[in-house]
Design a protein around this nucleic acid. Structure first.
Lengths: 340, 340
DNA sequence: CACAACAAGCAAAACGTTTTGCAAAGGAAC
DNA sequence: GTTCCTTTGCAAAACGTTTTGCTTGTTGTG
């Protein structure tokens, strides 16, 4: 293998100094090099297949062009992938690269991993959670540009991005209302997390806007998985005046409702309309009929976080913002007009 | 903020030279520093909160302690997360960190991303695919230690790790046989990928070992998603001498079979036993009854790939190996004795 | 007592860039 | 023909480490 070619080799081959090569390649610095030489140097560099050593330039510039992404990743959902992909795409577009680290629930480990990222001189950190939650930032992040992804901080000095849970639930329920439903129920989660409260609020908002009053017995909650949804739905659907439309906390819960409906001999959407939430394609697309649901914008949140972080890094000073991203409704086949 | 503390500051504070600090901290180099001074230096370093700059040491050592992970990530499954987590855990244990990059199906983009990883001087690359496939390595990887994850290469000089599809399918079918089934069918995939052929082979192996001959009409194939599974199962289960046990190419297909069974009034597992494959918890755990299936060892594969890569990097010379990892059966409730 | 051997520590070079200050050459103005 | 810009280029310093000689004491051996 020929000796690794660095800027020196390029300089020699082009018959100029390394200074000139550097200037020619990073045209930024004012016209300190003539058009012709620049062209020439670039041609030579390309021919030689020169690729700058980013360790060296990072060292010199005090800029690594690396972003750290720390995540708890205890999830079995594909959400993590979408967020990371969004973040990575945005980073790529700006010439950065992502260093990914995950620590599960071990906060000691998390701290150690953050320190390692700092040793690698990351220019900033995306602190990601796999579901929308409130967090207290570990103090090792002090002084490092940071953006929260799918989480909000108790201290408001750091930017964050989360789904707009309220608007999302509102839109979900609106879908049922505009199909003609008036007796609408909800199966909520029992955990004390933002999604639980936000989605309930959105549910109420939509009904109120249309002058509908929900029957309290139609607003239930259970463990937010399929078994929980099934059990909760069994009771709810056994009611003599059961709702004709049901908003479910999540697609997994909705799947449980499908099972309960099937067990009770109810057809979807003829006898019961259902809207889920999350757009977990693995489930929403697989159910029969397809589940109408509202998508959590994981990819877009990942993107937003990195864009915001890079803006903070490259032009500091803008005040922190707490962003809520819109959640589009995805129509499939689980909503129809109410039975007569 | 106090001036960033580097090795110089530690040296000054400890009253020794930077050389001595370096030696004291990386005890590797033979006893060139006295026990006492070492202790002292370490204490000072800890008190000052010294953290080495890895850009600088990487530059000096020609070792970045960074591994690149390039993946196509077009998947909506949680598999990617498990693989990356496995890889990351293994990397962490050896003091390395992962730089993750994903390119979808765009091979031009992939090449550019690999070049960027090289600019960051990654010590090696894990080349990951999101489902088991054969690939041709992009030539930009020449000369860089590389391991394939969930893929095998046409050129056998690079190590790789994939699931043992044949053994996995064999174990799945064995589960049905040992429950007493003799009329066993399979719904396979139609794509020309290793999983398709491997799982079919495993199916035949298990039957043959027990002296069972499958009815050719019971071996079918369809698009490997839930709708495909449902349609294929509709025909298969309508047969007068339908199988009593069914091995499905994937959990998604199995979910389609559940739907078909429900539509035809067949109970699981009383009338029909089912084994899936993938252990897609989101589905296998949510189905009712739970789906017995065989797990793809994504986490372990991620780990294996990184361990192997680090061994190649730190002690080169061992011949490439094509590893197949075992896939454990996960028992839930979809297998029972055959109907009388 | 002379001399070697060794332990402990230091100064300086190197890794591959970017950037600052300086120098040479050319042209314009007087 | 001198002075003074402007343009173009270069040499050298710097970023924060690690490592290679080299120097100084100290101890041990004959």
């Amino acid at each position: 293998m020929a000796t690794k070619i660095g800027i020196r080799e390029v300089a020699k081959a082009a018959g100029v100094s390394v200074t000139t090569v550097s200037h020619a390649l990073n045209d930024a610095t004012s016209a300190r090099v003539n058009q012709q030489t620049q062209q020439h140097v670039r041609a030579v560099a390309r021919d030689l297949g020169y690729a700058p050593n980013r360790l060296a330039s990072g060292l010199r510039n005090q800029r690594s062009q690396i972003l750290g992404l720390v995540s708890d990743e205890i999830t079995t959902t594909p959400f993590a992938g979408a967020m990371i992909r969004g973040a990575q795409d945005a980073a790529y577009e700006r010439g950065y690269v992502l260093m990914v680290v995950n620590s599960g629930l071990d906060s000691e480990l998390e701290k150690r991993e953050i320190r390692i990222l700092q040793q690698h001189q990351v220019d900033g950190i995306v602190y990601a959670k796999m579901y929308h939650q409130g967090v207290m930032l570990p103090e090792e992040l002090d002084g490092l540009p940071t953006v929260l992804l799918d989480a909000v901080s108790t201290d408001a000095s750091v930017s964050s991005v989360v789904p707009d849970e309220i608007a999302a639930a509102d839109a979900a329920v609106e879908t049922l209302i505009s199909a003609g439903h008036t007796r609408i129920g909800m199966i909520n989660n029992v955990d004390d997390i933002p999604a639980t409260h936000g989605r309930l609020a959105g549910f109420h908002n939509a009904l109120r806007r249309h002058g509908l009053t929900p029957d309290p017995r139609h607003i239930t909650a259970g463990v937010a998985d399929t078994a929980g949804g099934r059990e909760t739905a069994m009771d709810l659907l056994a009611l003599p005046d059961r709702p004709s439309g049901l908003f479910c906390f999540s697609d997994r819960v909705a799947m449980g409702v499908y099972q309960a409906a099937s067990a009770l001999g109810l057809r979807i959407p003829e006898d019961l309309s259902i809207v889920g939430m999350d757009n977990l394609e693995l489930i929403a697309d697989a159910l029969w009929p397809g589940l109408t649901t509202v998508a959590l914008p994981h990819y877009d949140m990942g993107r937003w976080a990195v864009v915001r972080l890079l803006n903070d890094i490259e032009g500091p000073g803008s005040p922190a913002v707490q962003e809520k991203l819109a959640c589009p409704v995805v129509h499939r086949g689980s909503v129809g007009p109410p039975p007569l």
